[in-house]
Design a protein around this nucleic acid. Structure first.
Lengths: 195, 195
DNA sequence: GCACTTCCGCAGCGATCGATGCGGAAGAGG
DNA sequence: CCTCTTCCGCATCGATCGCTGCGGAAGTGC
């Protein structure tokens, strides 16, 4: 038997949940907030997503492919400079959108947590480290290609780009505007690559 | 009449509370965590500090004068380059200490909050903006002094330094080591000032 | 020693946290 | 229409949240 079909759109509900987590963080978003925004009851949420932590994991995955999808495209840019520029431009666009929360879910989702939230904090630490590692590997390839000066440290350059990106995310979360951040990263990139 | 004197050291208790807020954030630190670390009962905490939010405000003030005190000294450096270098060095030292929590209280204390924590979030937004503004004013003076090239944008340079500092704070909170961050900021400063 | 003030441990406040059990409603297959 | 499966609104769970009233203990000034 097939049974009664679900009465709401799972993707739509997950999108709404992602936005709430993005704005309030994992622990700052209560189930009441989430289910209200998703338009479903707590029962339906548990049946469809498991529990709050699983919901967050799925929301983070959706974030990575949606608002955070610029990273994939940035890594495909032809030169290391273009990669750095695309990462920073994407970060600024995503963290200062007019129709979405300010800042980056991967940064502000769970930078600090209570004793019971350590798993989610670790998840985001891994998420940020994964972003760093992918950029570092891309720069390593750029060195091999002769695109970056011989002897360049891919790890150092990736730390630099991610530090700027995370710094942008913090400032965006504080309300700093898109144009001002863009002017700042433009200036930083004029001195690319740092040595 | 004088009455019975307080049975604990207020400064010591505030120091302990600051460390708990630093590690877990404002909302991630429960009263049970705080009072246990402070070694006092909730009653004593309320009598001495008012309530949780007031305790946080006092802890933040203590942080600004203690672990965050490097900013004052950095602004007194003779050149803009030295100011930038001292800000970044101080940030790294403070966010990667072996005996204190990783990261920066002003960043991770309340980057995102629940509905009831907006006041504390705004407090930290103001705290970060104040740091930015002081650096900007210092750079403005550096331009007047001829220490920075004519036409330099003090606001842009201050955004750059604070973005790096906040980026360092996020990475330190993720467990990135002191030496690696130091190498990164050293490289960034070799291209100072960005234009 | 006495009177008086303040401190602080205990117990518990109402509210909210994440998470569930129950049972009628709703839709699918025969 | 009937049966069976699934969905989901309602009520509520125990735990924890920030916070406070009570009252004995403790220390101070006379």
């Amino acid at each position: 038997m097939t049974g009664r079909p679900r009465g709401f759109d799972t993707d739509e509900a997950l999108e709404r949940a992602m936005l709430v987590f993005w704005e309030h963080g994992y622990e700052g978003a209560s189930l009441a907030n989430l289910t209200h925004a998703m338009g479903i009851s707590t029962t339906s949420m548990y049946a469809a997503f498991g529990n709050k932590e699983e919901l967050f994991r799925k929301a983070l995955a959706r974030y990575s492919e949606g608002p955070g999808g610029y990273l994939d495209q940035a890594l495909a840019e032809p030169t290391a400079r273009d990669v750095a520029a695309a990462v920073l431009a994407g970060t600024i666009r995503s963290t200062t959108g007019a129709t979405s929360p300010q800042g980056c879910l991967g940064v502000q989702g769970a930078l600090t947590v209570s004793d019971s939230g350590q798993d989610v904090r670790d998840l985001l630490v891994t998420w940020r480290d994964n972003s760093y590692s992918r950029i570092r590997e891309r720069f390593r390839r750029a060195v091999e290609d002769g695109d970056l000066p011989e002897g360049s440290d891919p790890g150092l350059l990736a730390r630099y780009v991610t530090a700027l990106a995370f710094g942008v995310a913090v400032q965006a979360a504080s309300g700093v505007g898109r144009d001002e951040l863009r002017a700042m990263t433009d200036a930083a990139l004029r001195a690319w690559p740092p040595s």
